[in-house]
Amino acid sequence: MNAIPVAKLTFKELLKEKAFLGLLLFEVFLLFVSKLISNVVAGDTVKVAMDFALAFFFFTVALFSIFASVGSTFRDISDKVVYLILSKPLRRRDYVLGKFLGVAGAVALFTFFSFFVVTAGILTISSLSNLYVPHVIVVERVFLVSILTCMMGIFLSAFGLLFAVLFTSQILALLSVLFLFFAGLELSPVKELVTSSKYVSPINKVIVQLAYYLFPNFSLFDIKDYAVHLSLTVSPLYFLLVSVYFLIYTSAVLVVSTLLFERREL
């Protein structure tokens, strides 16, 4: 496994990047924001605060994944670290896979730390209110949310890597991944809108349907409602299917990234 040394190097580099600690601190800040919002919005304060806290959590992990994957790969290429790496007996596909695994490791660790930050925040917020909150169940559900959030981050990192080897401009790559992420979150509303509209031809409806299933669907990984509303349940089958989707799609993106990188002049 020649990809492992590259993965280790990438992982070490990312942990010491400012983005890692910076975004964790940002996460703490967002917890205060969630608390403030819950004070001014009507409804169950704890649920509102959790809703925002988990949305921010999802968003921060996405941001970290994008910066880690695009940033790290661009640093390698523009600062010529790739020359050092690829002059060793490593194939370009080892580099792509290693880079992905390293970023995935950093995303997993980031999510893990974030889980503690967010859980601590939510428990603090709930203990400040005088509503009854079953803490054990909440923590367990936030943990499940974290697992899918982590998967989302890793999935997004694969796209980050793809755009980083596809584009020669870092800004363009960052913006494309961000666009992809937000578009991938809003797929179902758009699909609903189009397929229920009288003004869209059946053929276009089919195209939209197809696009819906092919476009990376980041909202699949967003199960915060389940953590917030304890009456909701998610079946284990859902987790399984999302995992399969994640594995197949991520592998496909990595294969495409490798093919592109193998053709790229450095």
């Binding site: 190097l9 070490k12 580099e13 010491k16 990047e17 640093r75 600062d79 010529k80 670290v81 020359y83 050092l84 002059s87």
Partner: peptide, 10 residues
């Protein structure tokens, strides 16, 4: 390589 560079954070 020419003007070689490696991450400052390691």
């Amino acid at each position: 390589p020419e003007r070689p560079y490696i991450y400052g954070s390691i």
